[in-house]
Design a protein around this nucleic acid. Sequence first.
DNA 1: CTGAAAGCGCTTACAG
DNA 2: CTGAAAGCGCTTACAG
Lengths: 364, 364
Amino acid sequence: MALRSRATIADVARLAGVSTATAGRVLGGYGSSREETREQVERAARKLGYRANALARSLITGQTRTIGVVAGDIQNPFYASILRGIADVVETEDFGLLIMNSDENVEKEVRAVNLLLEKQVDGLIVSPCDTRNARHLRDLHASGVPLVLLDRAVAGLDVDRIATENIGTAERAVEVLIRAGHRRIGVVAELVEEQEGGVAGFIRRGLAGDVLSTDTLYPSWQRILGYLRAHRQAGLPVDPALVGRVGSYSADGARKIASALLDRRDRPTALFATDGTMSEGVMRSIAASDLRIPDDLSLVCFDDLEWMGFLSPGITTFAQPRLAMGAATATMLLDRIRGTEIPSRAVLMEGEFLLRGSVSAPGA
Amino acid sequence: MALRSRATIADVARLAGVSTATAGRVLGGYGSSREETREQVERAARKLGYRANALARSLITGQTRTIGVVAGDIQNPFYASILRGIADVVETEDFGLLIMNSDENVEKEVRAVNLLLEKQVDGLIVSPCDTRNARHLRDLHASGVPLVLLDRAVAGLDVDRIATENIGTAERAVEVLIRAGHRRIGVVAELVEEQEGGVAGFIRRGLAGDVLSTDTLYPSWQRILGYLRAHRQAGLPVDPALVGRVGSYSADGARKIASALLDRRDRPTALFATDGTMSEGVMRSIAASDLRIPDDLSLVCFDDLEWMGFLSPGITTFAQPRLAMGAATATMLLDRIRGTEIPSRAVLMEGEFLLRGSVSAPGA
DNA sequence: CTGAAAGCGCTTACAG
DNA sequence: CTGAAAGCGCTTACAG
């Protein structure tokens, strides 16, 4: 029963009767060595149960073949799928994957980034909590650490990023409802970051085409922008009272906001849920009500969760290609790690329209 | 704009006018140092933007403060929640978390374990693909690496493990259906590992009380055992034709098996789905049929997925405490890493009964 | 192709 | 409390 202390290259070299440099060359697969020498060393290594110590190697090469990811919550299907996409490409390249949660909390994000940096990851994928308060990310980039931003951008930080084309996709989603004849469309959205003038101010500016730097907006605010555009395009008025702000990434918060909307005397005839978590909350609210989809209420969601397909009726939604997003993120990061010097890229992915049965004409 | 190459302890020591040993002591928080010295060093470190290199530290201390996890599929809600539970305790202790997928494939599992070991993780959590073919895990344990098994056990490997009390929980689940009056209860289960005599042979032996070493059985086989016990207890015959074997961790496979069961002339009046993936497939099958829950078909599931709560009717199920399972797994592993010498523990968690609306009397 | 030596960035006895 | 020296397990020039 071997002890924890394993054989080192020195042990192997001794047994094989060569120098540590030679043993290192064959075991590490670099430099060149005679066939015969190689066999000797390999035999010795096998005999001793040698396993490379990546720490020592990394200390010299300056590369750990490990990347770090800071996600909001790995348990959320959105992140879980993206992580799987990342893991798939990373595993192909024999890289390790260090994962941490931020819970959308900047301090936790900072701590996570620091921990990953101390562990000398070769690059970082971060889904930033805050699009403005992100000095740590700017410093990171300035210090030359490969970085790819996921789902969100950061003001004044020009690095590779990947996200959903939120404005356009949300606009199409709301269009689906407008085309079906809906005039009062409620929204349930996170909208965590404060905007000048609050929701009402944002709506006013959005309708006036006065919202600038839209790509450093939080996804849910971008989706509201799509909602506004669809209305303007159709010449429909927007009732600010129908834009439900949850203020956090909470399904239960979404349930409450949705219930408040549905309890109104002038309740909306359709709802737009701006992501998976919001959709879950909205569904809980509807399930607890007497309303039936789509007869009493139409629904369009954002992001495709497994249950949306087997509910009856199915839920019409715009799927984000999460696995592909993850894979693309990892590929971009590996590119940078390998030293690509091309200008930073912003990859925006369209949501895929999944027509199911949750939309009908109002009062149909 | 600082370059990638960061300040080292030597740089800080030089600027502070002390030795590297002293600088190391204050920056690393070990040994003792004068208040004044400490301030000097810290000032220098701040000025240079010093950040510790955990690699160098780990090489000396022999600890990386990183643990590795090999899960079946991090995208699966079962693993995603468990990982979150693990991450929560691990982050508290300032440990890193290296995560890999096995896709229930032994070769991938072996590769993952090797990669993690080369990266010198302090310990490993593995959800083993194969309860018998697991030499790599036995060797691992023999070499003294802290190891905790998740969800599944390995024959002849006496290490800490955590799992659901599958037999008892499944027995209770099937009891719920029997008490409601069901006599023909179908099962949809993975049952990936071959058993002597196949499903029919296993049923025969199970009813005869002839299945030994039940705790190294795959979870789905254990759950079948619970199904059999409930029948025996109630004096009900078991029809092997009603035990649907999917043979893989596939929701679509489960959908097909469920549909085959429901298409039978003598179709079951109730279904038991042995885990989340199976439940999803079963739901897809039911959604595509004309059957209504619970009037035409009763259903009990295993594991609680978000949608089970807001479907109407809700799905009666036995929830696995996934977050707590993850947390307990991590806690056990950290215990071992800290050197606890107590005998190995097997923590079996009961499923929590969630009574919702998917069960009624047959033909009601 | 191979070896002796230096060194990656830290921590750890050991003196003083 | 502090410093000089050694060393963790590798890889990398540099000779030969």
